[in-house]
Nucleic acid binder design. Structure first.
Lengths: 217, 217
DNA sequence: TTAATAGTGTCTCTGAGACACTATGTG
DNA sequence: CACATAGTGTCTCAGAGACACTATTAA
């Protein structure tokens, strides 16, 4: 890997601060269960462009702020959500994805066990018109979730602290969009070590009450 | 999701251009096989900071440039590589990862079937001291590769156009860092539909020559 | 009692590992 | 011939699907 004199000269002249720098933002895809289907949280844009249109909660990254901290801040500020599972999804940087200026957005996937009743959530299969490339970001999040639910505990992150195996199966089915075999689902979840029985049973069921489980740390 | 007057006022005052904006860069982890071990391509930094230290090939993202295009440009310019498999890995944005200024780096994973003999590659298990957080980026790439080799054709992207099943097994073993069972590897790869036999056999083997295969489109 | 869901036991099918065996090249 | 690797056939084991069966609650 020899450098040519030209290359060295180029590097010497290279000044990244001379460029127009892009802005960097975060956008968060919050997935949650509503009934038996997967929903995503959307906010309405208060400003142009796409004012009034639905969009993912997001924020510009502060000059000394960690990317994840910006995602946490966006969740708290725009959606009043905290303490949820969060993982980095992907970065979207098409030059014209925002008509104002170049904005590169680091997208995050958040999984919320439940959201307040009035929370503005939409079924992932029936989204309204979305601002920017947010439809693509949500599609990426959904694909990530479908892929990882098979071999991680991400599905359990959609459930409250105490849940039944039936609840877990419903969560898997909501993510995958198809029915899941009850017998092998129960077996594999119980053998996976991901859940721990609490020795208690659900209340208020109109049938035989099921054992309650919790996520193993 | 009602907005408070305060929040609306904040949003109205919010001007992202008033912030110092971070610079955005790409860094590329090029993985390749050398013998039976996985190697990564490193270049030596020509400039401060960390001048002379080993680093991933990278580039600042141009003002109207796609992220992937910047990665392709970095590969071509800093390493003379083109036409390789490329996928986005993750984005690294710790505020102090570059001592000069805030640089947010979108890391990419590239898989090269082979590199010229003098190419500056290093075994992923025995890396030299690296600039910035590049050791962490490489670790992330390696982990991604280990995870995906089990259920994708990424392992085949490390091989030339024509290869034997033994070559493929060596690639899997290099990625996973452990031996893989020959019989089930052959069976699963042949049943996967990922490879197509060419009806030709390798030459110059000092034993029974093996059938040659190619990646199915 | 019936209705509904929880939970168990067992059969089959499929894929991975193990291993014996045959095939085909070089020296 | 010996030796090395390619490639086949088959046994076993483990996990998924299917399904029959029992258990336990409400109404």
């Amino acid at each position: 890997m020899q450098r040519t004199p030209d290359e060295l000269a180029f590097l010497a002249r290279y000044d990244p601060t001379a460029f127009d720098r892009p802005s960097v933002a975060v956008d968060v895809v919050v997935l949650t269960l509503r009934g038996t289907t997967l929903h995503v949280l959307l906010v309405q844009r208060a400003e142009h462009p796409d004012r009034g249109r639905h969009a993912l909660p997001g924020a510009f990254v502060g000059p000394r702020e960690e990317l994840e901290a910006a995602a946490v801040r966006a969740l708290a500020g725009k959606a009043g959500i905290s303490g949820v599972y969060l993982e980095q999804l992907a970065t979207f940087g098409a030059p014209d994805r925002d008509p104002r200026l170049r904005v590169i957005s680091v997208a995050w996937l958040a999984l919320a066990p439940s959201l307040p009743d009035g929370a503005p959530v939409w079924p992932v299969e029936e989204l309204p018109a979305l601002a920017f490339d947010h439809a693509e970001i949500i599609a990426t999040a959904h694909a990530r979730m479908r892929g990882k639910v098979e071999y991680t505990d991400l599905g359990l992150r959609l459930l409250p602290d105490r849940f039944t195996l039936r609840d877990a199966q419903r969560a898997w089915e909501a993510v995958l969009g198809r029915p899941v075999n009850k017998d092998s689902f129960r077996r594999s979840l119980l053998h996976s070590g991901l859940v721990r029985p609490l020795g208690e049973r659900e209340a208020d069921s109109q049938h035989r009450p099921a054992e309650l489980y919790t996520r193993r740390t």
